[in-house]
Every structure is written in C-alpha cells, then in structure tokens.
Design a protein around this nucleic acid. Structure first.
Length: 388
DNA sequence: AAAACGGGGGA
DNA sequence: TCCCCAGTTTT
C-alpha cells in the first residue's frame, strides 16, 4: 500500500469531487445517516428529491421516531427496497430510546443499529465526526480490485476480508487535519468509483490524468480493467441430453414443428426419442429409432452418427443424432421434394387435437425453414462428415 | 438477460 | 460464522 494513497484521494476529492450534494456540508448525523440509507442501492440522482422532501417533513431523528409508519412509508414510496424504510424507522426509535436522540460516534455502535452495516457505519462516523474508519461499498471494491489487482469475486468472504484489510491500510495518515481529511477521503473514494472508475468504461482509458491512482493501478497497467473486479462465478449449468432422429429418404429428411412455447418454440426441428435411460445405450437408441422409422414406412438401417453440445444460458444440451435410412415410405403427401406433409405418423384422428406437424425437407433447402441453429448445423453436416 | 448492490436473516 | 436472499437498476 503506497503511503500516500489516502492523501491522493483527499487531494483529488478537494479539486475534482462533488461538494454540493444536499447531504454534504453538514455534520448532522441524522441528515448524513438518512442520505447513506437512501443511497444504498440507489443512485444520487434518484435520491435527491426524496431526500429533500423527507427532511422537510421529518427534520430530526425525534420527528422520525414519532412519525406513524404510514407516513414514513409514504415518504419513501418510489425509492424501492422498502425494508430500508422499515429499518430506518426502527433505527430512529432506537436512537431516541437508547441514545437520547443523539447518534453514537463509534462506528461499532452504529453498526449494531438496524439497516446500518459496517460500511455505512463508517461513512456516517467519518462524515459526521471525522472518525478514521474505512468504508467498503461496491464502488470502493471496484477501485481496490483494479488499483491493487485483486482477482476473485469481491463477494467471496476471503476476498472481502482482504479488501477490508486494504481499506484499513489505505486510510489517510492520522494527523491534525484528520477530521476534514476523513470527510474528503470517504467522499473521494465514493466519487472516484462513481464517476471515474466506473464499471463499464473507466475514465482512465480515455485520459489517465482523470484518475489520481492511474500510475499505481495494476489493472490499468496490465489492461485488466475489463476483467476486474472478477464477476461472480456462475453456478455450473446443468447438462441435458437428447437423441435426435435423422430420418432420411434420398436427399430428404423428416422435420417436426415444435410447439409455440418452450425451447425453440415454433421452429422446425428433428424428431427426438424419449429421454434415454442413463447410461446412454447406443444400441437401444438405434432400436428405438428404427421403431420410430416404422411409423413412416420401412427403415433399412439405423446408426448413431453424431454428437454435439449446444450451450444455452441456463443449461447445456448434449445432442446425439441417430440416422435412419428409409427403404420405403408409407406416408407421403406425394407432392415431391419439400412438400408439406400434414400430420403424422398416422391420421390426425388418431391423436386428436394435439396432432403434430411434420414435413419432409430436402437437404439442399435447409435455408427455407426456421430451424434451431444446432439442428441446421447438424443437417448441414458441419464437422460431421460421417452423417451423410 | 444477467450482474451488481449492502444488509438482513436463516442455517 | 457463513451463505443466500430481497428487490431494483444498470449494462
């Protein structure tokens, strides 16, 4: 930790930070606390009007403590995260009861109050009493992750602990100006994260001089601003599998129109065998595919021919393909290549209203129908020379 | 559609 | 103590 880290942030804040927000330039803990709670998960621009209105109506913690819950909720309505408002009200009552209406200056005591965690407690103590305590909100985590090259999701306990240690070490040195420095430092970290070291496009990419930490910043030096902070690891997505039947007669294959809803809704796809029992049994699948083919005529042979994985956002689909070559067809619409078959296999009357739509399509005309990408790829034989 | 967010609350 | 959630905005 460079010894001048805190001083850099303090100086930057004094010259380039924000100084005229409605909750700045006061040491009234009530006003500061109210702003910090409103600013949790809510942007400055959205908070300002609510803040002014709330303060005008309930200017002190005593007034808030005595207000009916309905009024508090009405003043909060539109800000969202309403448990914040309930905690706010509870907290005001506790401050009046336990502390005679005066917020404690000790961050550890503040953090025991409802709605106030460690970071919010430190912010309140720093702004209202100049206490030398570190904040660690999302903005600060982003600044630290980049500046000090911290890999790993900041939501992980180990990473967060490291960052709290950094936050302690980064504080400006104690001194005669500590109180003013802590106000500027705390606001400076927030402003830096919100306006310069933003998530999407940090200002240093355009102009390094915009950031007082750019010459220290590991992420900037190594070109890692886009990958730090490390996003939360996604749970490994589940894998599903299916067996698709490529029923072939000459250059034509049988397609099935999928239901409008669900995966690949409304697209023409290959027929699929009922979910195979695990472990996968190729011979059984081939047998099932032959049986399926018999509904359409006389199958000559069946063979497993391809395997591919398609990745969706929420699962991976392992697609196996079994090719069935038809020696003769029983059910044809007779209109030639590409003609639309109505219903099948069997009569519409067999299956009632839920009759499925089938059709034959020439492999030379794959472009003519809306098809799931992996199915199109499969039929086009991409990377699957053994298919046809 | 997914990630982020700070604190609460349950295991 | 750890982990996950609530509830909303942003990307």
């Amino acid at each position: 930790m460079p010894s001048d880290f805190g001083a850099r942030v303090v100086q930057w804040q004094r010259r380039h930070g924000r100084h005229d927000l409605p909750w700045q330039n006061t040491r009234d803990p009530y006003r500061i606390w109210l702003s910090e709670i409103m600013l949790q998960q809510t942007q400055v621009s959205a908070v300002i009007d609510y803040y002014q209105r709330f303060l005008a109506r309930l200017p002190t913690v005593q007034a808030l403590a005595e207000a009916p819950a309905d009024e508090v909720m009405a003043l909060w309505a539109g800000l969202g995260y309403y448990s914040r408002a309930r905690n706010l009200h509870r907290c005001a009552k506790l401050v009046v009861e336990q502390y005679g209406g005066r917020f404690p200056g000790d961050p550890a005591l503040l953090a025991e109050l409802p709605g106030i965690g460690r970071s919010t407690a430190a912010a309140i103590a720093a702004f209202s009493a100049g206490v030398r305590a570190p904040i660690l909100d999302g903005n600060v985590k982003r600044v630290f992750a980049r500046c000090f090259g911290v890999h790993g999701h900041p939501g992980e306990k180990a990473i967060e602990n490291r960052m709290w240690a950094m936050a302690e070490a980064a504080l400006p040195a104690p001194g005669p100006r500590q109180s003013e420095d802590m106000v500027a430092y705390t606001q400076g970290l927030m402003d830096l994260g919100a306006t310069v070291c933003s998530r999407g496009k940090p200002a240093c990419l355009e102009d390094a001089a915009r950031c007082p930490l750019s010459d220290l910043c590991v992420a900037r030096r190594e070109g890692l601003t886009a990958v730090l902070p490390t996003p939360k690891a996604r749970a490994p997505i589940p894998e599903r599998s299916t067996v698709m039947v490529v029923l072939r007669h000459g250059r034509e294959v049988l397609l099935r129109l999928r239901a409008d809803s669900g995966i690949w809704g409304g697209l023409w796809s290959l027929p699929e065998l009922p979910v195979p029992a695990l472990p996968f049994d190729a011979e059984q699948a081939e047998g099932d595919a032959l049986a399926f083919g018999r509904a359409f005529g006389t199958p000559a042979r069946a063979a497993m021919v391809a395997e591919m994985t398609h990745v969706f956002t929420h699962f991976r689909l392992l697609i196996r393909a079994v090719r069935v070559d038809m020696a003769a067809l029983a059910l044809r619409d007779g209109s030639g290549v590409g003609g639309v078959g109505g219903v099948g296999p069997g009569d519409a009357s067999d299956t009632g209203a839920a009759a499925e739509q089938w059709r034959w399509l020439s492999l030379d005309r794959l472009d003519e129908l809306g098809m799931p990408a992996p199915v199109r790829k499969l039929l086009a034989g991409e990377g699957l020379p053994q298919l046809f």
